[in-house]
Amino acid sequence: MGSAARTRRTLLAGLAACAVFATAACGSSAEGGSGGGIQSTIKIAQVQDQTGAIAYAGLGASEGAELAIEEIDEQGFLGPGVKVELAKYDTAGEIERASSEMTKAMGDRDVDVIIGPAATQQAAAVAPLVGRQKVPTVFTQAGGDGVVVNDYTFRATPPMESYYEQVLDHLKQKGATNISVLYNATFPTFALLGEDAVPEMAKARGMNIVQSLPVQTTTQDFAGQSQQIAQKRPDALVMLLIAPQSVTALRQLKDAGYDNRIVATSVQAAGNIAAAGADADGLVYPVPFSTAMDGESSVAFTAAFREKYRKDPTPYAADGYDAMWFIARAIKASGDSSREGIRQGLATVAKEGFTGAMGKLTFEGNDARIDGALVQWRDGKETLAQ
């Protein structure tokens, strides 16, 4: 048996041990549930982008979720013969379609729980519907406001602002005083960071925001903004753009003569910035997960993913993996795979937290929190930032 297979076997054993602990902590298997027990087939709907501009988030989450399902089934984690099925619904980057696909998924009485849209605009649009229909939904990504809004909405990926402080700490450590911000004002997570969170974090560290430049999701040319930034010559640039925009912006910033520090977000992770080539070298950004992370559970997940897919996992794969294990632990905790049983189980697991691909997950209410990691992109790969 190869080293990857041994590491994966260790991961499975560790997850099983966690399951035993969780069950013991929660009391009898049916405690808190509706008493319906665990069905022989559990159907989980994934309502996320499989096509469109941010398909990478949904596709990555699918891969992580499928790895988790394989492990859950192999372990007999939910009982002898219990199988988990994943049904995929494509939101295709559209808010209206997200609402339509969520309605379809919730209307299927065989669907016990949903992994919800990764885009904040989509997630915020469907979250009230989730509460009305009482279908437990675990969101990945979707880091903006209006997502975790009722007892049936949970988020397995921490909001970006909750682990972005380390970026400002890094800049402070490197001696940065004057900072420019270039941000996508259409993207809720980036608007929150660019307009509120980053300025507040900078002020708390004695830094000055000397320039704040909003753009739209449709913006494809950053030559003008790049010239303005180069003329201002800040010590560092906080770049809050979606992945395709970042590739263009990095090239145009270099062309304009800006050569100081640039920090970004997890959107640039997992090779999304590779198309920028050498222009991306030195880019620093925080991530909820990276293959550079050296914690035991993260290393084990990376090995298991590589064994199954013959490639490196992305943060989106880690999201899907942890979301699926969150759901499995919830069913185990309540001993009830009905919609209400899963909701109560999710709330129970959230109170305890658990360790997954992203490391130790804790929760504020139904909303995940992690330490994350700060990585640097150079020569086509991520390493932990110094």
Rank of each mutant, 00 (worst) to 15 (best):
L384Y: 10
V82E: 02
T103S: 10
V111R: 00
T41D: 13
N260E: 12
S62R: 15
A269Q: 06
A19V: 10
S226Q: 00
S212V: 07
S3M: 08
G365T: 11
N150F: 00
A236C: 09
E66Q: 15
F77Q: 09
T23Y: 02
S298N: 12
E296Q: 14
F222H: 01
R155E: 12
D221A: 08
A278D: 14
Y309I: 07
F305H: 10
R339S: 14
G60S: 10
I95T: 15
Y163E: 05
V181F: 10
Q344A: 13
A25Q: 14
F187K: 00
A264V: 02
I38M: 13
L171D: 01
I262G: 03
S62H: 11
K308E: 13
S334Y: 04
Y89H: 07
H170Q: 09
S212D: 08
Q216Y: 03
I242P: 03
V287A: 15
D371G: 14
D235N: 08
I229H: 05
L11C: 05
A25E: 14
L78C: 10
S338M: 02
S29I: 05
L86A: 07
G33K: 06
N272A: 13
A13S: 13
R378V: 06
D294A: 15
D279A: 14
A123F: 03
R155I: 11
A5G: 02
A323Y: 04
Y164E: 11
A57L: 15
I44K: 09
I72F: 00
Q268W: 01
D279P: 01
V147T: 08
D221N: 11
A204Y: 00
A22S: 10
D371H: 13
A204F: 03
L253H: 08
A87C: 06
K381E: 13
I72A: 01
V47A: 08
V238G: 00
I44M: 04
V215F: 00
L12P: 01
G64S: 12
Q46T: 06
Q225E: 15
T314D: 03
E94R: 11
F154T: 08
N150C: 03
E296F: 05
Q252G: 10
D151C: 10
S298G: 14
V113P: 03
A280D: 11
K360A: 14
Q141V: 13
S3I: 12
P315S: 06
T137M: 07
R233L: 01
D371Y: 04
F154H: 08
T153G: 09
G93L: 07
G76N: 04
K360R: 14
D108Y: 04
G143Y: 05
D281M: 05
A142E: 04
F326W: 12
L67H: 07
A57H: 05
V47Y: 02
K43R: 15
E31H: 15
I229K: 00
G335W: 06
V148F: 10
P159S: 11
R369C: 06
R251V: 08
M293S: 08
R109T: 12
K203T: 13
E200M: 02
Q220L: 12
T302E: 11
P158K: 12
D221M: 04
T219C: 01
A243H: 05
T177H: 09
A22E: 15
E70Q: 10
E382N: 14
L192Q: 12
A249T: 13
T10K: 15
G32I: 05
C18H: 10
L182K: 03
A223V: 03
V111K: 00
